[in-house]
Structure formats: C-alpha cells, structure tokens
C-alpha cells in the first residue's frame, strides 16, 4: 500500500478506480486532523497535490470555473474576488492564513461539512460541481451534490474536478458568526447574492442545517420589495421581514458551539444586514 501521487487527472481517476478505498487528499486541512487524532486510519491516500488540471481557474463567458485545487487564499485574489465577491469574503473567514494557503474549494466540497464556509455561497449561486472518473464526467447542482452532514453524492471513484458559478450580476455578501474575531468555525453563515438584471436574490445558509440551505420563500418574497432600477429596497424596513423569512428556512440544532435558538436568531440578523448592505446603501 502506498500514497498515490498522480500527476494528471486521468492518472488520478485511473488510480482511484483501482483503489476505491483510498482517501482523496486535497489541502489536508480536514483529513489530517482525523488522522492525527486516530479517528481515521487510511489504508491508502490519493493526493491531488500534483494534478495540474485542478489548479487553475478561468472565465467562460458569464461563468467562473474554479479548479478544485484553488485554495482559499487564491479565492481572495482580487481577480477572483471581483467575479465572485461573496466567495472571496467566505474564503477570508476560513481558519488562518496557514489554513487558507492549504485548504481548497474542492476540499470544502469533498468534506461537505454543514459549516464549510464556501458552501452557502455556492448554494446561493446555484453552483455546479464537476465530477470525473474513469467512466466519465458528470455535473451536479450543489443541491444534489450535498446530501447530508459530511455526506455528498460523490462516488468513491470520482474526483471533484471543478466548480462553476455565474459571474457576479449584482451585489453579494457573506457574513459569518463565530464567538472569536478570527479563526473560528461558523456558528451561522449566510450568503446573499443578487442578480440585478434577472431581478432575483438568492440566499445560502451554513451551519444551520444538515446541508447548505436556501430560503426560497424569502427569495420570492423580496423580489417585489426591491426597486430594481434604483438598486434599492422600496422600504428599508422590509429587510427585517426578509430576515424573519430567511430564519424560517433554517433548520438548526443545539450543539456545543451554539443553541438552535441563537443560530436561528443569527440568521435573521445576518439576512437583514446582508440585504440592507446590498440594497439600502
């Protein structure tokens, strides 16, 4: 048994097909914690560190295609931040500089934790996840990709190749509550993205459900509360009702980090603030 270090995506797929028991290693920031504490004992590891196809990012018309190996630090790069501001904001809240240098967006998807910071943004953006294996290539909408807490639709022989999101079509916000001013796991996270031309607002919620959640009722309700040509709320007070509607979509639990009540309350406040920043300034 060995550590597999493929140097191309094709080889990675082939090796994973041969070793479906192998753990796929991206930045290491999740897997290694489990290994270090003896919670996971890999018989084999397939490292994606040297797969060049996963590393870059590019713009394809109105779509931003991010290789799975793009790190959080790279997501904060102004060139990406301009195209996906909320993704950059979310990336900057992840861990510390050291973690952001190692952790990748593909890794965030691979782990599929409800607290993964980029996931609410990807949910709000209706991102699609590209999975490849020796048998082919498929893309899944995020809503179909995330199926439970740390459970995803990725097959054991598949590698996350990229994730695609639309280029920003309006203001975006990501806000995250944690009891420390840096380096903290999300107690509640909220992404809000607007499509000015398409006249819609989408919301993604993190850490308040088994998977990243959307708030369809709130999203539908708010469309008519916005003066789309002016880019403003008709009545700024509507942001409060929006917050309540978004909070109603949350499905939080009590755990050692926070109570469900506090999390739901946070979602309401974050939604109101996000909408106000986007449409009341």
């Amino acid at each position: 048994m060995t550590v597999l270090l493929p140097d191309s995506l094709d080889r990675a797929c082939a090796q994973l097909a041969d070793h479906p028991e192998a753990h796929v290693l991206a930045g290491g920031t999740d897997l290694m914690v489990e290994v270090n504490f003896g919670h996971r004992r890999p018989e084999a590891v397939l490292s994606l560190a040297r797969v060049p196809e996963l590393k870059g990012w590019g713009r394809d018309g109105d779509t931003l295609v991010l290789g799975a190996g793009v790190t959080y630090t790279e997501l904060c790069d102004p060139a990406i931040a301009e195209l996906a501001p909320a993704l950059a904001q979310a990336a900057r809240t992840v861990g510390s500089p050291q973690i952001r240098n190692a952790g990748t967006i593909g890794g965030n998807l691979g782990t599929g934790s409800p607290a993964g910071d980029t996931l609410p943004v990807l949910a709000a953006l209706d991102a699609t996840v590209e999975l490849v294996s020796v048998t082919g290539r498929r893309t899944l909408p995020l809503a179909e990709y995330c199926i439970g807490p740390k459970r995803t639709a990725r097959d054991a022989t598949e590698i996350i190749a990229s994730v695609s999101v639309p280029v920003a079509r309006g203001p975006q916000e990501y806000l995250k509550v944690g009891p420390r001013n840096a380096m903290v796991i999300s107690v509640a996270g909220l992404a809000a993205v607007a499509d000015i031309e398409g006249r819609r607002v989408a919301v993604g919620l993190g850490s308040v459900g088994p998977v990243p959640l959307r708030a369809p009722e709130a999203e539908a309700w708010v469309v008519d509360r916005i003066d789309w040509s002016a880019g403003r709320l008709v009545d700024p007070a509507d942001a409060t009702e929006f917050g309540s509607l978004v909070a109603a979509a949350a499905r939080p639990i009590d755990d050692h980090r926070a109570t469900a009540d506090y999390r739901r309350h946070c979602v309401s406040v974050l939604a109101r603030r996000a909408l106000t920043r986007m449409f009341a300034a």
Binding site: T93, L175, V177, G178, N181
Partner: peptide
Amino acid sequence: PMALPGGAGRTADPDG
C-alpha cells in the same frame, strides 16, 4: 470590517 466585533466574519455594521 476586521476591526469590528465579529472581525473576519464581517457581521457588524458600525452604526449598530
């Protein structure tokens, strides 16, 4: 934002 309560999470608005 990094100087407000909540820091990196960008949660606070100065007037609140």
